[in-house]
């Protein structure tokens, strides 16, 4: 399966890189999230720092309760860090108001989730162009690009289908298209393969990785399945809320992937 790197008309509406941004697409510095349980302070995430470059695909892995989803939530601006900061496209998001943060997410972040990814009453094309509508950018060129993107994702003949008429893998591919259609700085995926069989899971991650690379987005995928890291550029391993290690050598990533149970 090949996927489009860009579309001329759409690219004029959605620049590949946010204006003036030259450094990392995402920076997290000393990010900590604590909760109070009586007198006890619980660390969901403790002092995590990382950088993701445009065109880089990162896997956030770790066992349940390791803090990877909490970290993803802070990187997405859905949760405010207790300490540290998150910067996306050169903007620190922790100090933004809720309304500004919502607007920022709409413009600069693409999401795929484990569940409830798509609106069941919108067609495949409508689900993807929803991001364009939210941003007030439903131009014919952008819609054409959405169709082309879906076509390249193997869903060209499913544009008018409802999500209930698609398989789990197809639904995830639609959500990937939705995550990328507005050309965000960062694309975040929460366990995108959790409900898929192995073959479909690999297909989805491979597609995701290719789109992230080709469109020069910064991609971060949370997964508990180490086999899925085969297509990423960097693996961030979490344990007990702490960043345990970062693996970015290709051979180490492959070994991690192949050694997975």
């Amino acid at each position: 399966m090949t996927v489009p790197a860009s579309h001329d008309a759409a690219a004029s509406t959605f620049p590949n890189t946010p204006a003036g941004v030259t450094g990392p697409a995402l920076v997290a510095d000393g990010v900590t999230k604590t909760y109070q349980l009586g007198d006890q302070t619980i660390y969901a995430v403790k002092d995590v720092s990382l950088e993701v470059q445009p065109g880089e695909f990162v896997a956030l892995v770790g066992p349940s309760g390791s803090g990877k989803t909490s970290l993803l939530a802070m990187l997405a601006g859905l949760l405010r860090p207790t300490e540290g900061y998150v910067r996306i496209a050169d903007e620190e998001i922790g100090s933004m108001s809720d309304r500004a943060l919502t607007r920022f997410r709409r413009r600069n972040i693409g999401f795929t989730f484990q569940a409830n990814n798509l609106l069941p009453y919108l067609t495949v094309l409508e689900n993807v162009t929803l991001m364009l509508s939210l941003n007030g950018r439903t131009t014919p060129a952008a819609v054409d690009w959405a169709k082309e993107l879906l076509d390249q994702l193997g869903l060209g003949d499913r544009l008018r289908n409802l999500p209930s008429q698609l398989s789990g893998g197809q639904q995830q591919r639609v959500s990937i298209a939705r995550a990328l259609i507005h050309r965000p700085a960062v694309v975040l995926a929460d366990e995108p393969t959790a409900s898929l069989d192995t073959e479909r899971a690999f297909q989805v991650v491979q597609t995701f990785a290719q789109l992230v690379h080709d469109n020069r987005r910064a991609g971060i995928m949370v997964t508990h399945d180490l086999r899925m890291v085969r297509y990423v550029d960097k693996v961030v391993q979490m344990r007990d809320g702490v960043l345990e290690r970062v693996v970015d050598a290709p051979e180490e990533i492959r070994a991690l992937s192949e050694g997975a149970p």
Binding site: R103, R107, F111, N116, L119, M131, N135, R178
Partner: peptide
């Protein structure tokens, strides 16, 4: 709730 949460996460405003 899940759908509404997803909409808010992707940037739909409370007004929408």
């Amino acid at each position: 709730l899940g759908q509404i949460g997803m909409l808010k996460a992707i940037g739909a405003s409370n007004a929408t």
